[in-house]
Design a protein around this nucleic acid. Structure first.
Length: 878
DNA sequence: TTCCTCACGC
DNA sequence: GACGTACGTGAGGAAT
């Protein structure tokens, strides 16, 4: 088998990579973009070329033998940026891990090392491949030496063989040197002959073959000016030739045999990849058995697998982890339980804990403090085993969320890594993912769970300290943690669903949908997949020749706002809109809800995600009960299926009226806005009066609609563009509305300006209850990123404070219902409203209690106002 | 699986 | 003047 030698021009590739890629850095703040680019290139070469011998050559230092010929050689170059310099040692370290030789030689450049070895390889008739970003190296091309030059960026190379070179540049490899001699090279400061560029040089070489020949026959050169220049700069030309010539007999101290390459060990490489933060490359090197390997590296952790729980395992300050493999803890079995405290670490198999009286006693005693990860999940999971967990003292999930909501991974291993705890694997590494996910054998499972519990135990103090520094400890302990328990109860209680009612609506819908669908096919003259915008687009805009209003990345847009503009153009449009509307009801709400109803109890148990949104709001999943239709009557009927769990009970719904705008009035301390709310005016009408400068009775419904959209925009932090889309007006008009709004409410304008400054100064904004949102992009030079951050700075204190308020109201109300010994219970929260179920006879009490608790939970300089209603279903509570 | 488009709520 | 524009969840189709 013939040998394959790969020679890489290290400097050239690293420079290319550095300038081609954005300035990435890893979690330690080390710049890695050039290393990353170099590594991707390296991996590709290893895969594609399968070298038997390999070397990466580097330039040695400032001066080379060429400087004695011409001291200006490479003069005028920009200094290498420090962000790049620091990456060279990293590349060399990386090469060591790959078992790839690298070499540099004093007074010589990488080119010369490569030239010398390429020549040796050529003589041995090896297959030689050179990789560089520099076309100078093309002089090395021969039948057995291929030179690969990176094209723009580093992702692609162009392989030069003698014939390709001839085709592309119309010259031979040897002539590359002559070409350089004539045209020079500004990047290396090689002078060449002034006025001779690539075109002229190529022409001359085609005619005379070599530089020497050119000068021997210089009289035959056509064009007087060119001739004169050649004659006048003869010395420059020959010096340039000398400079451009790669030395193929450098005094290197290595031989071809030293370059033997036998492959790398993925584990050795994976360590440095992890240090550098090259997660995406780990897979590429096939670190499959990573969990096994990694585990071997983890320090052993002592723990016992418990077969009987005993009192003396507990200290009264214990970390507890309830492990489940699937996120839906309402219907997922517990895989095992971890317990760590000052005196020991334990793995308790689920059935051992479930059967243990000792465990239940410990768990239910509130004076036993528990450190947990995700109090709500822990609580709900144990409730299913009839264990009522009390005494939760710290919730790491919520703590991590409060410290930085923009962190999107809050599981224990991720938090552990962020806080420098390395002795832990990610769940995915232990359990696998997707179809390959499975429970490992008990010893592996137990080890992983105990490690997690250990991280939890060890990090509590540090995280509390950080929260304390941020003045957020109260937010955690007095707001989010108590709320978690209430949410847990709400989820566990669930909402009763009238399945028959849903199915009835479903079959009605099905009939109507079938009918509309058939009618649409008739009008279109063909059958197609109506749910596919990709298929619908051509039908509407090609076959029926409707005007194209908007395009998406993949074709014509058929979104509702587009179709609405075409409503009167063709009879098919309203039918499609109706089909979409009803189809949504059918698939998401009827079928979707039926899928998640507990067949035994006919109840739905959503999960409120308390550690997700950037503003502090909750979200609801599996199913989402925060987006049940209400705007259109047809959809609103879905709410008829949400009913009280018990006979003679009612649904009671209470919602804050304009809570965000009231919060804005308070935070901005805007006199006009405050007085509008103090006088309990219709805020949209008031805004219309102020923006359009009209009296109350002159406000038309259209003016009010526009004013409402402006208020909406203020609350949600949308841009002039967003407002223009909302109102179907131009961006300029939208901007005028916003300007007028600010003229009317100078306090609001001042607040908006101040909060942006504050965000720039501190790097974050806060809410009423000290929730934080970091906005690093507020200082970005990118207009979009910065604008977005600015709008976020304005909006988050408003939305976030409103979220704080309703959260506190839930705690107050929950406590009050207990105090009053009412059976009423909160079922759902939908951002500004609470859904409660209660016995009929509690209604009078609720009418008093609920608004009172919600309105008085905080005191602002405007009143909070709560509206309420009740009835025999959620639909009727309107 | 993952991405895109669409649609529902606040 | 560019850029791509409140936050969420979920369904279905299409490309991988």
């Amino acid at each position: 088998m013939s040998n394959k030698l790969v020679l890489i021009d290290g400097n050239s590739i690293i420079y290319r990579a550095f300038f081609a890629l954005p300035l990435l850095n890893n979690d330690k703040g080390v710049y890695t973009n050039a290393v990353y680019g170099f590594t991707t290139m390296l991996l590709r070469i290893l895969e594609e070329q399968k070298p038997t011998h390999m070397l990466v050559a580097f330039d040695a230092g400032k001066t080379t033998f060429r400087h004695s010929t011409y001291k200006e050689y490479k003069g005028g170059r920009q200094k290498t940026p420090p962000e790049l310099s620091e990456q060279f040692p990293l590349v060399k370290e990386l090469l060591d891990k790959f078992n790839i030789k690298h070499y540099q030689l004093d007074q010589y450049e990488a080119d010369d090392i490569i030239g010398t070895l390429a020549k040796q390889g050529n003589e041995q008739q090896w297959d030689v491949s050179v990789i560089s970003g520099d076309k100078d190296l093309l002089q090395l091309v021969s039948d057995s030496v291929t030179v690969n030059v990176t094209k723009k960026g580093i992702s692609d190379v162009e392989a030069y063989t003698p014939s390709y070179l001839l085709e592309k540049m119309e010259i031979t490899p040897e002539q590359i040197i002559d070409l350089k001699a004539l045209m020079g090279d500004s990047s290396d400061n090689i002078p060449g002959v002034p006025g001779v560029g690539e075109k002229t040089a190529t022409k001359l070489l085609k005619q005379f073959k070599t530089l020497e020949e050119v000068y021997e026959h210089v009289e035959e050169v056509s064009g007087k000016k060119l001739k004169d220049k050649l004659i006048n700069h003869k010395e420059d030309a020959f010096m340039s030739k000398e400079l451009a010539t790669i030395n193929r007999t450098s005094p290197i101290e290595i031989s071809l045999e030293d370059l033997v390459y036998t492959g790398y060990h993925p584990n050795q490489v994976s360590t440095i990849f992890k240090d550098l933060g090259f997660q995406s490359l780990l897979e590429r090197i096939g670190v499959e058995g990573e969990s096994e390997e990694e585990k071997a590296e983890l320090e052993a952790l002592d723990f016992s697998i418990v077969d009987e729980v005993s009192k003396n395992m507990f200290t009264g300050e214990d970390a507890l982890v309830i492990e489940m493999l699937v996120d839906n803890y309402h219907k997922t079995p517990i895989e095992g339980i971890g317990l760590v405290n000052h005196s020991g670490a334990y793995f308790i198999p689920t059935e051992v804990a479930a059967a243990s009286k000792e465990f239940k006693t410990w768990a239910e005693e509130s004076s036993n403090k528990k450190v947990v990860f995700d109090a709500k999940k822990t609580l709900v999971a144990l409730l299913k085993h009839d264990i009522h967990l009390k005494g939760i003292n710290f919730d790491m999930l919520l703590a991590s969320y409060l410290l930085n909501p923009s962190e999107n991974n809050h599981d224990i291993p991720a938090i552990g890594h962020r806080f420098g705890k390395k002795g832990i694997l990610f769940d995915e590494e232990v359990y696998g993912k997707g179809a390959k996910m499975k429970v490992p054998e008990e010893s592996v499972l137990a080890d992983h769970i105990v490690r997690k519990t250990n991280v939890l135990f060890e990090l509590q103090a540090e995280m509390e300290k950080q929260l304390e520094d941020n003045e957020q400890l109260e937010l955690l302990k007095e707001l989010e943690m108590p709320l978690a328990l209430i949410l847990g109860e709400m989820e566990h209680t669930g909402v009763q669903v009238d399945i028959d009612r849903l199915e009835e609506m479903g079959s009605e819908l099905k009939e109507r949908l079938d009918e509309i669908e058939q009618r649409i096919y008739e009008i279109a003259g063909e059958r197609f997949n109506l749910n596919s915008p990709k298929q619908l687009g051509p039908i509407l805009f090609e076959k029926l020749k409707l005007p194209v209003i908007k395009k998406t990345k993949t074709g014509y847009s058929t979104a509702a706002d587009v179709l609405e503009q075409l409503e009167n153009e063709h009879e098919i449009i309203p039918k499609i809109l109706l089909y979409r509307q009803l189809g949504k009801l059918q698939s998401t709400y009827i079928e979707g809800l039926l899928k998640v109803v507990d067949k035994q109890t006919s109840k739905i148990h959503t999960r409120f995600n308390q550690a997700l949104t950037q503003t502090g709001r909750l979200s609801s999943i599996d199913p989402n009960l925060q987006n049940i239709p209400i705007r259109l009557e047809e959809g609103r009927k879905i709410r008829q299926a949400f009913v009280p769990a018990k006979k003679d009970w009612i649904m009671f719904a209470a919602d804050y009226s304009q809570i965000e705008l009231r919060v804005l009035a308070h935070i901005a301390n805007d006199e006009k806005l405050i007085s509008a709310f103090k006088n309990d005016l219709d805020i949209h009408t008031q805004t219309a009066m102020d923006v359009f400068h009209v009296e109350k009775d002159e406000v038309t419904s259209n003016m009010r609609r526009q004013a409402k959209a402006v208020n909406f925009g203020i609350v949600y932090g949308i841009s002039d563009y967003g407002l223009s889309q909302n109102l179907g007006i131009t961006r300029k008009e939208a901007k005028r509305f916003i300007d007028r709004y600010f003229e009317s409410y100078p306090g609001v304008k001042q607040y908006m300006e101040d909060i942006v400054q504050e965000a720039k100064h501190k790097g974050y904004v806060t809410t009423l209850m000290k929730r934080r949102r970091y906005l690093p992009e507020i200082t970005s030079r990118n207009f979009n990123l910065r604008s977005f951050a600015e709008r976020t700075a304005m909006n988050t204190p408003i939305q976030g404070s409103a979220a704080d308020i309703i959260k506190k109201a839930m705690i107050d109300l929950h406590e009050k219902l207990l105090d009053e010994k009412l059976q009423a219970r909160i079922l759902l929260q939908v951002h500004d409203e609470l859904i409660i179920e209660a016995p009929k006879e509690d209604v009078d009490s609720l009418k008093e209690i609920v608004p009172a608790m919600m309105e008085n939970t905080v005191e602002l300089n405007v009143p909070l106002k709560v509206d309420y209603a009740y009835g025999s279903s959620w639909f009727d509570a309107k």
